[in-house]
Design a protein around this nucleic acid. Sequence first.
DNA 1: AATGAATGAGTATTCATTCAT
DNA 2: CATGAATGAATACTCATTCAT
Lengths: 216, 216, 216, 216
Amino acid sequence: MPNPARPSLTPRKRPRQARAAVTVDAIFEATIQLLIRSGADSLTTTRVAERAGVSVGTLYQYFPNKQALIYALNERYLETLAAKIEATCTAQNGQPASTMLKALIDAYWRAKTERPEVTRALYRSVADLDNSALIEAFASRVDTATTAMFASACDADFADLASVNLTLVTVIFGTVRNVFERGLDSQDAEKLQGQLCLMCDAYLKALDGSSIAQPR
Amino acid sequence: MPNPARPSLTPRKRPRQARAAVTVDAIFEATIQLLIRSGADSLTTTRVAERAGVSVGTLYQYFPNKQALIYALNERYLETLAAKIEATCTAQNGQPASTMLKALIDAYWRAKTERPEVTRALYRSVADLDNSALIEAFASRVDTATTAMFASACDADFADLASVNLTLVTVIFGTVRNVFERGLDSQDAEKLQGQLCLMCDAYLKALDGSSIAQPR
Amino acid sequence: MPNPARPSLTPRKRPRQARAAVTVDAIFEATIQLLIRSGADSLTTTRVAERAGVSVGTLYQYFPNKQALIYALNERYLETLAAKIEATCTAQNGQPASTMLKALIDAYWRAKTERPEVTRALYRSVADLDNSALIEAFASRVDTATTAMFASACDADFADLASVNLTLVTVIFGTVRNVFERGLDSQDAEKLQGQLCLMCDAYLKALDGSSIAQPR
Amino acid sequence: MPNPARPSLTPRKRPRQARAAVTVDAIFEATIQLLIRSGADSLTTTRVAERAGVSVGTLYQYFPNKQALIYALNERYLETLAAKIEATCTAQNGQPASTMLKALIDAYWRAKTERPEVTRALYRSVADLDNSALIEAFASRVDTATTAMFASACDADFADLASVNLTLVTVIFGTVRNVFERGLDSQDAEKLQGQLCLMCDAYLKALDGSSIAQPR
DNA sequence: AATGAATGAGTATTCATTCAT
DNA sequence: CATGAATGAATACTCATTCAT
């Protein structure tokens, strides 16, 4: 429930006509570019509009304020990301757990590394914004998808699936974030991806022998 | 080599007298408080000075600009954190790897969770700031300490210690960060800490059987 | 009780040093000049500051927002006006009612006509502003002063002093306002002032014969 | 002669068809509503159009600019008011002066009090607008009507009718305005209306005995 | 050393008005 | 005739920083 005191973060109007959609996309793209080049601090609505090739007024027709613009940008980003993860999960239905893990790690890693500057820029922009709602929505979508996937594994049965799922997702996502934070080069990153797979696999196998997960 | 174009981030003068140290501490504390309460966006030097009980002029006697203040704050924070990790690593010398892992995870987790709002505030404030230098210095200190520790493990010999160390540190730090990002409650967090230990342990054991690590 | 939702109208800080007082006075004077020349609509804080010979920032050190500036200006104006009326009332203590009336009308009329453009400018500027609090405070001060004066009249005793006082004050003030509104020339205005005295006098005499006021 | 520099205040086109008249009326009504609710400052053409249920474009078909809209609104208002006063004056032809006075005061008072928020809103909106032309036209119509009325009084002959008329009209109109300005409650207002009648009556009687008015 | 008044460039945001559809 | 997306000049207000006292 958003605090009614603080200004709205919801878009002012949805683009109905084709050209309006183009306008909104241009604004989003311009925002990303500026975020990458100069960071969130020097992001001004005027510059965004300028770069997008529209007037400030137009920008404000679609976003009630600057925060709402950044918010919407993150929303769009997370939505795309969630969709990718969901697709991956669906595709892995019935596979062995180890294959699933590899696929999940790979999909997430790839999505984040595809346009690394975008990832970095958004990681940063998000900072001051109160986007917990977005994060929560994203987390919930992902949880649902990955949980369903792991539940369908042909070679494992998890006693406490929720816990296992939370662990895996948190570790994977966190590791990726930290790779960006430390600015690891792609060689290190690649090696690390492999080690992460290994680690998660080992984790599942360890569970297998414990009281949490039972061999089938 | 710092870019000469961007303003200096180094403090203007070091506090020599006792009361000056008090002043600087008050400024740091005030900054943290404001960061927690209202976020980096509404952090102004005037407000920091006000809350610290000094005049703006005084603040500028110690910090050449706002960035330098935040930079110094993070520096102080990371220094403390690094020191804690180093202490932990030293204390674990010669222990079994599993014990080391547990200790490292616990130490880091505790340091971050002690004053969660501070952690969160700093995670955020850092965003726009170009603090890669800080992060790198911190990472390097930590790497040295943990590498030395793992090398001394009484029950393991790592074929590629650097790789193993990087993996563990990245995974652990990243996981903690993600716990904050998702805003997990303390119950979930605690459970996750246990699972993380389990996972790292399993990782080491898996390495044991592979070509990377050889049993002694 | 001011609505806490709308921005404060109270000054940000009181000028303590002599030069600060000069600054504030310059701002007030500049505001009046601009109000006279171009009206409230085109009054911008930038222009006020410019004309006052200070920076916008300085203006905002003393007034939290534009409204507060106009509010303070009116406050100052009404305070001066109230003081003049109070002085007049005090001076008339014990005089015959007719003399009092003449003095009151004369004092108010003169105060308003002294700098007619200022009067006109303030009449206008007040429009959108919620200055009912100011008006009320002013009215209350005036009521007290005039009531005390009329009560001391050596030749009359009012059965319903409150009512008589309200009538006289409302009629006098209203008439003056309307003179400005219609833009009467000074000849007409002067004649009207005389007629107003006559009318008020006649009113008091009429009351004398009625049940409201008793001859002593 | 209107200043050619300032934008025209005359309507762009007169509504010829019935539905156009409805549109214009809706725009007027919407303007009044917004004026009442939020004041002249936050009155925007977009909002007026929205509330009137038409597009901004349509609004601009009838009014060349925002000022013209407010101007026209006041014009309409003053026209109605003038008509009411003229009707009252005509109806009083040949009556005793005292009756006339009572009728005039009553008519004006009633017209202003009927929709007090409208009165207040228009009193305010007018402020910045250069509507002296409107006021003058209104004053002239009223003067003609009241002068004719008083000239027909069956029981009085005024030596300086113009002066008497100006006095009465100014006092009455001004008093009413001040009642609104001070925000008197209806009880006080009613009492004041009575006292005003009394006062004006007394004024006429006083003139009777002086050199200005001669008994017939 | 400390103070805090003054500065003014810079920013978010609004809104009257136009004009292509 | 009607629409409403686009415009961009204009404005209130902030805040890092300086410097005279």
